[in-house]
């Protein structure tokens, strides 16, 4: 496979009508990596992907591929493959012709087109559907055609724009595994856009969290999951309890905080001093029932399989979310505690 060793985005910026959709993204993608761009809708992740593809011109910055400038090339000359959220299959062409389209554009000899198309068809297990039109396929099958069409060209980089968001939950899990499997067996380099943190964490080697066009954090799944850089990343990584509090005392990395009807000890993220306004982030699964904790009142209980999700109110009226093993009744008084290592305290 022709490829690069390194693809470097240097201060890539894109404005729409004077507003920054993407403000200065710098990132180096190494060969064979799986990178996920993660963020809520409107955070600039699709803009970043389209800039990388060449479908959107940059307002500022540059993109370099092993020292050669790339951002001035039109998309068809960059040699990247792309999978679209809506699949964007050519509705008038059969599955086979959809996959062969890019090879034909490259004016490859006919038998090579045939051989590589067959290969791609068997890769996504669609051999028996080769003659069908896209409209006759299910969502999952269409998705596989779209992937085959992108990878058949052996692109140096595959771009995926929320490829699973139109599938139902079960298929989404299947296709997730499929995408990771293809990435590994074909040795692809992939940039994957999603708003689903679980998807991003399970697929990617490295994640880029974006918010309002700015990079909030770049790191491995473990980095982001365990050590979110700020409250916004924490919010995105499942720290459902984000409670405004005040620092009471600082003992090295451990701080005592108070507020929202709770008193806790937690781990400081960044320098803090007593009296600071902070936000304490705790995952629901790290907030435990029982012990000599803070009293709260149960309001809503949801069954979630192995455990129960509970929403409760502190005495100050703030909502907290936790997991419980046994079913409390709404209105019950319970106490909650959290290990200091599991409570992250962010400056607000």
């Amino acid at each position: 496979m022709t490829g690069f060793d390194e693809l470097r985005l240097d201060g890539v910026r894109r404005r729409f009508g004077g507003q920054d959709a993407l403000a200065g993204l710098s990132l180096t993608i190494r060969r064979g990596e799986f990178i996920a761009l993660l963020g809520p809708s409107g955070c600039g992740k699709s803009t970043a992907l389209n800039c990388l593809a060449g479908l959107l011109p940059l307002s500022e910055g540059s993109i370099w591929q092993d020292g050669a400038r790339l951002d001035t090339l039109p998309p068809e000359k960059r040699g990247f493959g792309m999978v679209f959220q809506s699949y964007a299959l050519f509705p008038h062409l059969s599955v086979r012709k959809n996959i062969a389209f890019g090879l034909q554009m490259r004016r490859l000899p006919r038998d090579e087109v045939r051989r590589r198309t067959d290969q791609a068809l068997s890769l996504v297990r669609l051999e028996e559907h080769a003659k069908k039109l896209p409209g006759q396929l299910s969502g999952g099958q269409q998705q596989r055609v779209a992937i085959a069409r992108a990878v058949v060209l052996e692109p140096s980089l595959v771009l995926m724009d929320e490829p699973l968001s139109n599938l139902d939950a079960k298929l989404r899990l299947e296709m997730r595994t499929e995408i990771r499997r293809l990435h590994q067996t074909l040795g692809l380099t992939t940039v994957y856009v999603t708003h689903d943190q679980e998807e991003a964490l399970s697929l990617a080697d490295r994640l880029v969290v974006l918010r309002d066009g700015r990079v909030e954090q770049i790191g491995t799944p473990e980095d982001l999951h365990e050590r979110p850089a700020n409250r916004h990343v924490a919010d995105f990584m499942g720290y459902r309890n984000l409670l405004p509090m005040k620092v009471k005392a600082v003992h090295g990395p451990v701080v005592a905080v108070e507020g929202s009807g709770l008193t806790l000890e937690g781990t400081a993220v960044g320098p803090l001093s007593p009296g600071d306004d902070v936000v304490a982030g705790i995952r629901p699964e790290d907030l435990h029932e029982g012990g000599s904790g803070v009293p709260v009142t149960v309001e809503v209980v949801e069954y979630q399989g192995r455990e129960l999700a509970v929403e409760a109110r502190t005495q100050s009226g703030d909502a907290v979310h936790l997991r419980a093993a046994t079913r409390p009744a709404p209105g019950d008084q319970i106490t909650v505690t959290a290990a200091p290592a599991r409570v992250l305290v962010f400056p607000s």
């Binding site: 479908l55 990247f80 792309m82 809506s86 299959l89 389209f101 890019g102």
Partner: peptide, 15 residues
């Protein structure tokens, strides 16, 4: 026509 279809063709190398 979904505009993504034209973008897809472009990504496939079509002028």
């Amino acid at each position: 026509i979904d505009p993504a279809i034209e973008r897809a063709a472009r990504m496939c190398g079509a002028k």
